[in-house]
Each structure stands twice: as structure tokens, then as C-alpha cells.
Design a protein around this nucleic acid. Structure first.
Length: 980
RNA sequence: GGGCGCGUAGCUCAGCGGUAGAGCACUGCGUCGACAUCGCAGUGGUCACAGGUUCGAUCCCUGUCGCGCCCACCA
């Protein structure tokens, strides 16, 4: 047989070639002809952002999915691993805007919506989805032909259908309330996209202790970071008679002084003994000179702050609720900021809105000139200065508090009163909760269910509209109300439907045929502005909703939209419900919970019961750097998986991640582990090389149950043991256990022992067991390739192809399912052999006997079985143990080192070679250790409670241990004595 | 404030009611034609601490200390 293998394995040379072979064979296609009748197995990939590139989290996530898919494919299933990318609204829009800026091109606003979207699509075609190629480098066995994108026409149709149906069911609605507004990206964002950032101030001032208020110093501090301070203002309380005299002050505290311009009340707790007498009095809001009421509300905690809270309903979530409760007291919303986070000026005024409020309050609500148009932080400083000038600034305290920031824009978000679209998530959560509570869907590890429950049980309406351009348009249109339909407070008539045709039909019906369908025009902006005239005659203008949907809205549909829903496709029928969702805990809320809601709501079984999108959710760890820090570009601690693949191969990286993927703990990735597993790949490579050099080749019809030689009987049992452990590990999602079982089996069992022990047989061409051993080793390695394949697909496929002419690629071959190959008596025999060799080696090392020196063994007290074993394994013993002769004696020879193996004492006569003092020390050490053990075990056995209550097999085991150790100690004692 | 998790060898981590494990690092020694990306032998641990349950606790329970994360709040 010719040797075809190099001495080392170089992944770079083979990975691409192997991947091409898989693709050429359509190995990863779903609905393969040869699997028509097979059970299905399906996973949908967490779609990476189209802007993304492969990071460690992806590498782990997709390694896990690939292990599962390859495993199930080898178990014969019809596997669909559905792949695709997410359009990632904000992220993509930002990337393209940055690119345009870098190229000196016009801005998004200058280009206009249509041109800009063209530019985004161009970008997507050109450089979007590089991550897809990177997933292939990792070896991901997705059904690549079925790649989907969340903005594909089919998926967009699914989005529109879901939106319209939920709207018609009342589960999607438009509402005016406070949202998290991002003043940089100029869009609303959901609660989940807000991150809390801790801020710490440093400026301190108190009216009574400091002479002079140092405005310049404060300005300097606030310029660096506008957050981190608590300001105390004294609000004057007025009489309401004609004199309007100040009768006292009420002190309020705030971290956001600029919002005081929009205060419409002050709240104190109705049972606050110190302050409740003020309820009903009026405060003259400083700077603005507007009268606002002091109201009683339980929100005002007497223990916190000053006990009195300024209420700005239009700029604070809690205040908004207080305002609603005190509408009758005229605690109204007065919006003081525009979408840029600047104090509104004359041109921003919504005249209608402010005049209505002014009218209700009977007071002017205009913002004083000096503040108009100021940025929120400039306004903050200005308010403080002017309050101080009025003598109403009591003190400034540095505090530590958290400030809400937009996770994408990294600016403080602003609670902002706007019209937005919401999903009634509370309603959809009911089924999503039930499905997990009743076990239709299970989390692995289970403790994540608690996190899932807590979030869903307290879920808020989900704000789904975004003021962006890149994304799914909201299929809503706005028209002027009919004269006879002014019942609603809203000024426009809302039309919602999946297609423009349907909307035109709705419009046509609404105006009772007054406008032809051809006489209805859509304009691309939010307007409900009447009609116009052209050559067609009178034309009705209907405004399009300019907003797009939250990216996660389409992601929520991913498990069925990718399968073709709402069409009833073959894929939808066969592969929904998917089997497992593999993801990190950081997107349980963003994605998992929402997929559950949507899947259960839209996909029903025959009885109308919702079908969850997956029966299992496997939550894996987060990959951190070797120090446990979250990897991030700004910290510069990112380990690039592609670099590791270049350096060590995809298999080594995959195996590392699998081996470290123990449940319930983060992965601190240490590159030395990757190196270690690269070495593991080389080890298997070289074992294969050895087999090839020794004429081992798969034999057709080989039956492992009928091998004769004990070494072969033993190793086929070990293969069975490994196959059980690996199968169990994968099915239990304990990938580290599966990986470790493989590592130990291949390295510590096959390579360290079987290959070594079998060398005398293989190197002797006349040996009776040679053919059987060759066939066995080939069989063992074939099984090693198969069992390792889900973890190291490239290496194993390559070796599979190099070692024989195969009918199939390994990736399409059968998963080993073995039984009845283990044999206890053979296991005992080989354990004995391994033990005796190890003892010889230890003895030689301890006594510093030259490794090259061949020694003799003399066995004393060996029973028949031992003599038979010696005879049976003499060749292996002599070769590996470097032994010259083996003989038997009745008494210990003089001048020998000794050890005990089972019932026999084994002497190594070494007079003149070894240092007997050293041997004495060695023996004494062994005896000492045995004595410790014996004392411990005796203590246990002498304990009557132990004897009374411990299980019989435990007692028996301890007794056996005691007997064994005692016997061994006695023999060693004799040996020591023999040394004199 | 609510929740989740973690403290095991120098480092990174498994494990587990019955004699404490791996990789890396470290110390010796390298001999047999698979492999120096290797082999053999070894050093190294009061399993954070304190109680409790148990015949027996690194493992289960309670508490303490230290660390991390998530959610909520923050006048």
C-alpha cells in the first residue's frame, strides 16, 4: 500500500476542496431524493446582520448548530438548516451613510429616500453578506440554495400579512404616548434597545456654605459629561388673590433641570405629614411664570429627594402616568423639545397644539425666548444659571445614577411624545408563556425559562415603528376624513392593507365611489391633505406611512417566513415546527420570545392550536476573552475566528468551542486550547498514517463481534463505549462531554494504547492475528472519523476519502450504532496489561534507569490467569516495556526492584544497575500512601452507622479496596524487607 | 430593589453524595521507523469561608465574603 499522507495535517490545503465536494454532492440539501421517507430535522439559523462579519459568538453558535445538523444527517434524517441574513435596519442604514460620507457623496437627506434605498441595495449586493462566505469557512452545513434575506419579496409579503392581520385583530394599533426617542438617529426605539449607563458627577455647591456659585466651573464639568448631578430648586408658592404674593417655597430635586420648562405640576404624597398641607396650592413655575398645581399623588415618595416631585408629563415616563391621573388638575403634557433634542422655538411650534393647551390652562405656555432653540444640555446649564440668578437654586449634589442611552447611537435617549405603532405584546405573550409552562417548548439549560417568564409576565407594548428608511414599510395609508365621519378625534382616516390595490379598494369604498381608483394617488409622506386636480379630474391624495418596522418584527417571523409562509409550501409542511433554536441568552427577549409569540399566533394545527416555532431552545454561553472580558472592538480584545481558522484550521476552532461549551458558564477563550486541539487533529492524522503504513484498510463485511485477538476484542468494545458517550453528549446538548469523550478515546485509548500494543502484530508479516488486526484498526479509525465528523468535519472527510474508495461522502454516511461489543473479561485483561506496562515505566523513571536498557522480569506468586495473560501479551509487553526475559520464581531474587501487579509481585533484578537506597525510598513512599488509604477505609468500615446505612455495593466496594490495598502493602513490605 | 450564575491545580475550565480531573504552563527523561503540532514519567489542590443535613459533603441546604451578568428604579 502506498502512503498518501504527509506527516502533518494542513487544514488550509484541504478545507476549500472538501467544502466544494460537499456542495457538488448536494450533501446539505433538504428534501434529497434519498431521504424522502426519512424523519425531518430542522433548524433556522439566527440570521446574522447583513452588515456583519463572523465573530466568536457566531462561531460558537454555528458550530453548535452544525454539530447537531451533521449528527442528525448521519442518523439518516432529512435535515434542513435554513440560512439567511437580516436586513438590520439601523445598522445597515448607518453603514451605508458612513460609506457615502467617506466617498464624498451626498447625504441621505440630500439624495432622498428613493435614491438612498437604491444605494443600500447596491451596497447589499456588493458587500453585504460577507458573513455567508465566512460561515462556509467554518464548515456550516446549511442548505445554501435556500438562503433568505429578511427583505426578500416573500418574507416582506409575510411581514405585511402579519401586520395587517394583527391590525385587524386589534393587536397592532397606533398610539400617542411617550417613547424612547433617539435624538441622534431621529427615531423611536424599543425598550430593549435602551441601555442604562452609569454616570458619576463631581460638582458640588450649596447655597448656605459657598459664597459664590461658580458657573464657569459647572459649565466645564457639564461639557465633559452633562450627567451625574442632582439639582435642588425652590419653587415659590403663590397666593391666588390679586396680589399674587409669595407665601412660601417648595423644594424639588431633579437631574434634568431643562425639563422644568415643561413642568405642569408638583406632586407630594397625600400622607406626607410635612408637605400634605400644600396640596391644592399653586406654584409659580420660575422662569416661565406659569401657575402649576401642587397635587397629591402616591408616586411622590416622602423618603426620596425632597418629598416633592416636579412633574413633566411630556418628558418623563413616570410623570406621564402622574399627569394622566391629574388631568382634572390640569397637569397636562407640554412638549418642550423637538426631535433633535433641542428646546423648541417659534418655528417648531405646532400652533394648534399649543393654542389648545394655552386655552385650557388659560395661560401662555410659550417657552421663554432665552431658551428657545438651545440644545438640551445648553438649556440645562442656562436653566441652572437663571434659577440661581433668581436665588432659587438651593444646591447641587454629585450623584451616581444611570442614564438611558441608545445602544446604537450612544447618546442619551429622550422620552418623547409621539405617534407610534405598537404591538399588544401582553396579549401575544399569553400563549408564548403557556407554551413554555406546559412544556411544548423547553429551554436548555432550564433555568433560562425563569428569565423568559419574568420578561413576558411584565411585558410592555412593543413599539414597532422606526423613523428610518431602510426596512419594511408600514402598510398603512392616511386619507382625509369624510365630512360625515368626524366622530374620531384623529384628523385622518387610516387604511391598512397588504397591497396598494386593496388599499385603493378600501379608499374607494370609504368615499362611496366619489373617487375612481385611478384617481387616487399615494404620496410618500405622512399627509392627509385633501385632493388636487389634473387631467384626470379631481384626484384624491392619500399619504403613505413614512415609517418602517423594527428589524425584529421580521425576525420574529423567521421560522415560518423562510419556509414560504403564507404559501403552504412543501418546506413549511415538512419542516415547521423546527427542532431546536440555538442562540445566546442576550437575545431571548429581542428574538426568542417574539418568535414564540408570532409562531404560536400564526401557525396553527388542525385543531386551531398554535404551534410553537421550536420544541427546544438551546441557550449557549457568551464567548469572552481569556480574561473574561466581553469582546469588543473598542477594548481591542477581539479574537478573530477567521484568523484562528487560518492559523489552526476550522476543525480546531470548532472542537475548542464545543469542548468549552459547558452549560451555564461563559466561555473564556484561550488560544492555547485551540492549539491543543489542532494537535489533536494532527494526532488522528498520524494515527491514520500509521495504519496506512501497516496495511490497514477497511475490509468489506468486517464484523467486529467476531474478532479473536483480545486487543481487537477490547478496542471494538471501546469504540462502542465512545459511540454511546458521543451520541449521549450530543442528544443531551452536552457538547463538551461529547468532545471530551472523543478526545480521550482517540488519543488516550486508540493512539496511546491500541496502536502501541498492536505494533508487534502489525510489524510481523507472518503473525497469525495480523490480518484481523489490520481490518480492526481500519474499522476503528473509520468509526473515529464518523464520531468525530460533526465536530471536525473537514479532517474526517479528508481522511475518510484518503483511506479507501468510498461509496459515499462521510457526511452522508451512517452514524455508528453499536451494541454488544463490550467484554468485561477482555477489558480486565487489557487493563491489567496497561497497568503492568505503566508500572514498569514508572519504576524505570523513578530509579533513573536508562530508557534504552532492557530489563528482565521475574514473577513471584503469579497464578494461572496471570501466566496465561503474560503468554498472550508477551510480545507487546517486551516491546513496549523494553523487556528482555520474563520468568517465574518462588522467592524474591536478591538485588531487585519490585512492584505488585494483582496477586503477583514482579521483580526486576538490577544488581549493580540501580541505587537501592532510591528503591527503598520509592517503596516506602508507596507503602505510606497505601497505609493512608487503608486507615481511611478501615475507619469507614469500622463505623457501625456506615455498615448499617450505606448501600451494600458501597460497603462491598470498600471491602474490596481494603483487601486489595492490604495485600499490595504486604507484598511491598516484603519487597522492602528483601532489600535489607 | 428583583432575578440568574460563578469562586476546584500557576492559568483556563470540567466534574461530582462514596480515593479530586483535563488542556496549557512547569520539572525530569527521551528509547521501539504514525506523530517533536510527539512520547514517557512526575510536581502541583483544606474543592472561597462558616454552620447544617447525611453513615459519609467539593457536591445537597442555610448564611457570610468576593466576583460577574440580566431586569426594574433612580425626585
Amino acid at each position: 500500500m502506498t502512503i498518501t499522507l504527509e506527516t502533518t495535517y494542513s487544514p488550509a490545503d484541504i478545507e476549500q476542496r472538501i467544502f466544494d465536494a460537499w456542495m457538488k454532492a448536494d450533501a446539505f440539501k433538504s428534501l434529497r431524493d434519498d431521504r424522502n421517507n426519512a424523519d425531518k430535522y430542522s433548524i433556522v439559523i439566527p440570521p446574522p446582520n447583513v452588515t456583519g462579519s463572523l465573530h466568536m459568538g457566531h462561531a460558537l453558535n454555528n458550530t453548535v448548530q452544525d454539530i447537531l445538523c451533521r449528527f442528525e444527517r448521519m442518523r439518516g434524517k432529512d435535515v434542513l438548516w435554513q440560512v439567511g441574513t437580516d436586513h438590520a435596519g439601523i445598522a445597515t442604514q448607518m453603514v451605508v451613510e458612513r460609506k457615502l460620507a467617506a466617498e464624498g457623496k451626498p447625504t441621505r437627506q440630500e439624495m432622498g429616500k428613493e435614491k438612498f434605498l437604491e444605494a443600500v441595495w447596491d451596497w447589499k449586493e456588493e458587500s453585504g453578506g460577507t458573513i455567508i462566505g465566512q460561515l462556509k469557512r467554518l464548515g456550516a452545513s446549511c442548505d445554501w440554495e435556500r438562503e433568505r434575506f429578511t427583505m426578500d419579496e416573500g418574507l416582506s409579503a409575510a411581514v405585511r400579512k402579519v401586520f395587517v392581520e394583527l391590525y385587524n385583530e386589534g393587536l397592532i394599533y397606533k398610539d400617542k404616548r411617550l417613547v424612547n426617542w433617539d435624538p441622534k438617529l431621529l427615531t423611536a426605539i424599543s425598550d430593549l434597545e435602551v441601555v442604562q449607563i452609569e454616570k458619576k458627577g463631581s460638582f458640588k455647591w450649596e447655597r448656605c456654605s459657598d459664597e459664590e456659585f461658580d458657573a464657569a466651573a459647572l459649565e466645564k464639568v457639564l461639557k465633559k459629561d452633562p450627567h451625574g448631578h442632582m439639582y435642588y430648586f425652590d419653587y415659590p408658592i403663590m397666593t391666588l388673590d390679586d396680589n399674587e404674593t409669595i407665601v412660601g417655597y417648595i423644594q424639588v430635586a431633579t437631574t434634568r433641570p431643562e425639563t422644568m420648562l415643561g413642568d405642569t405640576g408638583v406632586a407630594v404624597h397625600p400622607e406626607n405629614e410635612k408637605l400634605k398641607h400644600l396640596i391644592g396650592k399653586m406654584v409659580c413655575l420660575p422662569l416661565v411664570n406659569r401657575l402649576i398645581p401642587i397635587v397629591g399623588d402616591e408616586y411622590a415618595d416622602p423618603e426620596k429627594g425632597t418629598g416633592a416631585v416636579k412633574i413633566t408629563p411630556a418628558h418623563d415616563f413616570n410623570d406621564f402616568e402622574v399627569g394622566k391621573r391629574h388631568k382634572d388638575n390640569k397637569v397636562l403634557n407640554i412638549n418642550i423639545m423637538n426631535k433633535y433634542g433641542k428646546i423648541i422655538n417659534e418655528s417648531d411650534y405646532d400652533f394648534n397644539y399649543y393654542s389648545v393647551i394655552s386655552h385650557i390652562l388659560g395661560q401662555d405656555v410659550k417657552i421663554p425666548k432665552p431658551f428657545q432653540g438651545l440644545d438640551r444640555y445648553a438649556a440645562r446649564l442656562e436653566v441652572i444659571k437663571q434659577i440661581h440668578a433668581l436665588g432659587l437654586l438651593a444646591k447641587i449634589e454629585p450623584i451616581t445614577h444611570t442614564v438611558p442611552y441608545g445602544d446604537r447611537s450612544n447618546v442619551a435617549i429622550e422620552p418623547f411624545l409621539t405617534d407610534q405603532w405598537y404591538v399588544n405584546a401582553g396579549e401575544l405573550a399569553i400563549e408564548a408563556l403557556a407554551a413554555v409552562k406546559d412544556g411544548r417548548t423547553n429551554f436548555v439549560p432550564k433555568n433560562w425559562e425563569k428569565t423568559y417568564f419574568e420578561w413576558l409576565e411584565n411585558i410592555q407594548p412593543w413599539c414597532i415603528s422606526r423613523q428610518l428608511w431602510w426596512g419594511h414599510s408600514i402598510p398603512a395609508r392616511y386619507g382625509l376624513r369624510r365630512d360625515d365621519d368626524k366622530t374620531s378625534i384623529s384628523q385622518y382616516k387610516l387604511f391598512v392593507a397588504e397591497t396598494d390595490d386593496e388599499i385603493k379598494h378600501q379608499v374607494y369604498k370609504y368615499y362611496e365611489g366619489k373617487f375612481d381608483k385611478e384617481h387616487i394617488d399615494f404620496v410618500d409622506e405622512f399627509t392627509f391633505g385633501g385632493n388636487t386636480t389634473d387631467e384626470r379630474g379631481t384626484v384624491l391624495i392619500v399619504g403613505k406611512d413614512p415609517d418602517v418596522l423594527d428589524t425584529w418584527f421580521s425576525s420574529a417571523l423567521w421560522p415560518f417566513s423562510t419556509l414560504g409562509w403564507p404559501e403552504n409550501t412543501e418546506h413549511l409542511q415538512k419542516f415547521y415546527q423546527t427542532d431546536v433554536l440555538v442562540t445566546g441568552f442576550d437575545i431571548i427577549f429581542f428574538w426568542v420570545a417574539r418568535m414564540m409569540m408570532m409562531g404560536l399566533h400564526f401557525i396553527k394545527d388542525k385543531d386551531g392550536k398554535g404551534i410553537a416555532p421550536f420544541h427546544t431552545v438551546y441557550i449557549h454561553a457568551l464567548v469572552r476573552d481569556a480574561k473574561g472580558q466581553k469582546m469588543s472592538k473598542s477594548k481591542g480584545n477581539v479574537i478573530d475566528p477567521l484568523e484562528l481558522i487560518d492559523q489552526y484550521g476550522a476543525d480546531a476552532l470548532r472542537f475548542t468551542l464545543a469542548a468549552m461549551a459547558a452549560q451555564g458558564r461563559d466561555i473564556k477563550l484561550d488560544v492555547s486550547r485551540v492549539e491543543g486541539y489542532r494537535n489533536f487533529a494532527t494526532k488522528l492524522w498520524n494515527a491514520t498514517r500509521f495504519a496506512q503504513m501497516n496495511g490497514c484498510a477497511p475490509v468489506a463485511g468486517f464484523n467486529p463481534a467476531t474478532v479473536q485477538h483480545p486487543l481487537n476484542q477490547w478496542i471494538v468494545g471501546e469504540v462502542e463505549r465512545a459511540s454511546i458517550a458521543v451520541t449521549q453528549g450530543i442528544t443531551d446538548y452536552k457538547f463538551n462531554e461529547a468532545a471530551n469523550a472523543l478526545y480521550k478515546f482517540i488519543w488516550n485509548v486508540v493512539c496511546d494504547w491500541h496502536v502501541e500494543l498492536v505494533k508487534p502484530i502489525l510489524s510481523d508479516e507472518a503473525h497469525a492475528a495480523r490480518a484481523e488486526t489490520q481490518a480492526t484498526l481500519a474499522w476503528v479509525l473509520d468509526h473515529a472519523y464518523a464520531l468525530l465528523h460533526p465536530f471536525m468535519p473537514f479532517l474526517t472527510e479528508e481522511l475518510w476519502g484518503l483511506t479507501a474508495t468510498r461509496a459515499q461522502l462521510l457526511t452522508l454516511s451512517d452514524w455508528p450504532q453499536l451494541a454488544n461489543l463490550q467484554n468485561k473479561s477482555v477489558d480486565g485483561e487489557i487493563d491489567w496489561l496497561i497497568s503492568i506496562i505503566t508500572q514498569i515505566r514508572t519504576l524505570k523513571a523513578d530509579l533513573r534507569i536508562e530508557p534504552k536498557l532492557k530489563i528482565d522480569l521475574v514473577l513471584i506468586g503469579a497464578r494461572n490467569t496471570t501466566q496465561l495473560r503474560i503468554a498472550s501479551h508477551e510480545e507487546a509487553l517486551k516491546r513496549i516495556g523494553r523487556i528482555n526475559t520474563i520468568s517465574y520464581a518462588d522467592a524474591l531474587p536478591q538485588g531487585a526492584a519490585q512492584f505488585v501487579q494483582g496477586e503477583a509481585t514482579i521483580a526486576v533484578p538490577l544488581a549493580g544497575v540501580i541505587d537501592f537506597a532510591a528503591e527503598k525510598i520509592r517503596l516506602s513512599k508507596d507503602i505510606e500512601k497505601l497505609t493512608q488509604d487503608i486507615i481511611r477505609i478501615e475507619g469507614k468500615l469500622n463505623n457501625t452507622d456506615f455498615r448499617a446505612r450505606a448501600p451494600a455495593e458501597v460497603i462491598e466496594e470498600q471491602e474490596e479496596n481494603l483487601a486489595m490495598n492490604s495485600e499490595k502493602r504486604a507484598k511491598l513490605a516484603l519487597a522492602l524487607k528483601a532489600l535489607g
